[in-house]
Amino acid sequence: METSKALNILQLNKMKREGLPISMITAYDYPSARLAEEAGIDIILVGDSVGNVLSNYNSTLPVTIDDMVYHTRSVVRGAEHTFIVADMPFMTYHVSSEEALTNVRRLMQEGHAHAVKLEGGMEICDTVKRIVQSGVPLLGHIGLTPQSVHQIGGYFIQGKNSQAAERLLNDARALEQAGAFAIVLELVTEEVAKSITREVSIPVIGIGAGRYCDGQVLVYHDMLQYSAPYREKKFVKTYSDIGTLIRDSIGQYVKDVKDRSFPGEEHVFKADENVVERLYGNAKVKGGTL
């Protein structure tokens, strides 16, 4: 596959204006990123969902800035020609703008991210402005915000009534005015997501937000059922069942080891005859001569 330069925020805005859908995938490591780039993905998000997906945490809260730097660096190495966005994890941008900028610096300089993502609406816009003014592209995230899961009481669909819809619309407008280059909408009713997408001039990328956003994002491990046990999600389309394939393949390997059919003749290395004679002489072994 021919390589090309990574997209930038000007090109992403042009895609919105021209009605060209934006594809995004959430990935956490080198091989996943490499495969996503080879498949032609537009954006890779290194999500703090790495805690749920790879470590089986029950929320994203335990994920640290060190975790995000490590995984972002791995993804960038795998997808050198793709636009990479890194999540700012829990409480890394809430204490002060100075602390937020310090953590942004780590994701950009150590992780080599092209942009960062923050969860929240109007309440974080002052921080958004400071980060954008420092020269960092920033992706907003509203709707279901996993870092606030204990505050909102669980993983619920957002925007189901007029008050909630108005709040989401105001959050989207505020993030646009603060300088965000795009917004992720997570688990938002389709009607509200459609309204927000039409209202703001920046791209809106949905996950569980219906058909009318400017783009879509799914988690690598979800769309491939690469987990055990896999939990069905209404908003996810399964493209391959890699989990079952992996489990069956490892099971076959275990069987082959147990019945000694692996390694076979084609998997072993042979020494020169003089080495064999020096080690074993004319000794016989079970199954024939060495």
Rank of each mutant, 00 (worst) to 15 (best):
E2M: 08
T3D: 02
S4H: 13
K5S: 15
N8E: 02
L12R: 03
K16E: 08
G19D: 10
Y28P: 01
R34Y: 12
E38N: 12
D42A: 03
I43D: 01
G47L: 00
D48Y: 08
V50G: 06
G51N: 08
N52Y: 12
V53H: 03
N58K: 09
T60C: 10
T64R: 13
H71N: 06
T72Y: 01
V75Q: 05
R77P: 05
T92R: 07
S97M: 11
A100P: 06
T102R: 11
T102I: 10
V104K: 00
R106W: 07
G111Q: 08
G111Y: 00
L118S: 13
E123Q: 11
D126Y: 13
T127Q: 14
I131W: 07
S134M: 06
G140I: 06
G140C: 00
G143A: 02
Q147G: 14
Q151S: 06
I152T: 11
G159K: 11
N161T: 05
R167V: 06
E176F: 06
L185H: 10
K194F: 05
G215Q: 02
D222E: 04
Y226T: 11
Y226V: 07
S227I: 00
F235L: 09
S240K: 12
D256I: 06
E265H: 02
A271R: 00
D272W: 02
E273C: 01
R278N: 13
G281T: 10
